[in-house]
């Protein structure tokens, strides 16, 4: 589904898209890293004076064909016992009962049968450190690749998947590549459990009311809004950076007066109170059970805040006021 188009049709387009400058630089950097039979890449893997790797052709028809071709190339490379660079291999993974295909930037097969996922990113590593949220996102992404590779490795002789992935980035302010091995064991265990817990896609579809459709051509904005409303969702401000529909959801959440529009953490001290009106009424003593600790704390907070702002009973500074 094209969520950006859906968001536009709902009247809440977000600010997504990529600058062509960033796009061009990203592509050029990846090409540079993989040039010359991956010599640079092998050097980053710690091979002195690499002669270059085998680069098998992975082209095939359709995702299934490409995934099968990748699996075959992995087996051949492992059997060959020579450095092999798989450029944009395609791997299959079972997600909620449906096959999903994922495409790492590269996988390197070593002579010892070790498979290493390579992620090439265009954010810089400056003095051997990089933006931790970007590295975190890369690690979670790579963990999915490692998981998909493990499936193939399980049926390949003498193959093992390295738990450390090679993250390649521009060094400092140059376009020279540098790399760091990122241990993704944590992300792997999380991904495994998430996949195991994911509701099956059919179950989500089955839970929808009958006749719900997201057909952009055929539906009016109102019909689309109703359709989107019928899917369970929980807006939080973090969504804004991640989802094209977030502005639409935010709009809805604000109309409903949901307190989490102010941030997930806001709810921590509010207990069962979930709306702006409800919290303020409780704070002003117009509603709520005073025995509820959340209500009691709110009333104290409101009284202290009012006292400080009124400045009359307040104390000009933590000292004496006669």
């Amino acid at each position: 589904m094209d969520k950006a188009a859906l968001a536009s049709a709902l009247g809440s387009p977000g600010t997504f898209g990529q600058s062509q400058f960033a796009f061009m630089r990203g592509n050029a950097f990846e090409a540079k890293v993989k040039a010359d039979g991956g010599k640079e890449l092998l050097r980053l893997l710690g091979i002195d004076d690499p002669a270059g790797a085998l680069v098998p052709d992975l082209a095939a028809a359709g995702p299934e064909g490409r995934a099968a071709r990748t699996a075959l190339a992995l087996r051949e490379a492992t059997a060959a016992g020579a450095w092999t660079l798989l450029d944009h291999p395609l791997l299959a993974l079972d997600v909620a009962g449906s096959p999903a295909y994922v495409e790492p930037d590269a996988v390197v097969v070593g002579p010892d049968g070790r498979w290493t996922v390579v992620e090439i990113k265009s954010f810089p590593m400056i003095d051997a450190s990089a933006d931790s949220s970007k590295v975190g996102a890369a690690a979670r992404q790579a963990a999915v690749y490692v998981l998909a590779l493990e499936r193939v490795a399980a049926v390949t002789d003498a193959a093992q998947v390295a738990p450390g992935i090679l993250l390649v980035c521009p060094k400092d302010f140059s376009n020279l590549p540098t790399a760091s091995v990122v241990d993704v064991r944590k992300q792997l265990s999380v991904t495994r459990r998430q996949l195991a817990r994911l509701t099956r896609v059919e179950d989500i579809a089955a839970a929808l009311p009958e006749g719900v459709t997201f057909d952009l051509e055929a539906c009016s904005a109102d019909e689309l809004t109703a359709a989107v409303e019928s899917v369970p969702h929980a807006y939080a401000p973090d969504c804004l950076a991640a989802c094209e529909l977030a502005f639409h959801c935010r709009d809805r959440a604000r109309q409903a007066g949901a307190v989490q529009t102010l941030g997930r953490s806001v709810r921590g001290e509010l207990g069962g109170l979930t709306t702006v009106g409800g919290v303020l009424a409780a704070a002003r003593g117009e509603a709520g059970d005073p025995a509820d600790p959340a209500v009691a704390a709110l009333r104290r907070a409101a009284a202290l805040r009012a006292e400080a702002l009124a400045g009359t009973a307040g104390v000009p500074e933590a000292g004496v006021c006669r």
């Binding site: 941030g263 806001v266 001290e269 509010l270 702006v276 303020l280 709110l298 907070a301 702002l309």
Partner: peptide, 24 residues
């Protein structure tokens, strides 16, 4: 976020204007 700051945010939602978090 302290409960007092949370209240200030909620009052801002209600009044449509930001609310003070400091007097100096």
């Amino acid at each position: 976020m302290s409960l007092i700051a949370t209240l200030a945010r909620l009052e801002a939602v209600e009044s449509g204007r930001a609310q003070p978090l400091a007097t100096v």
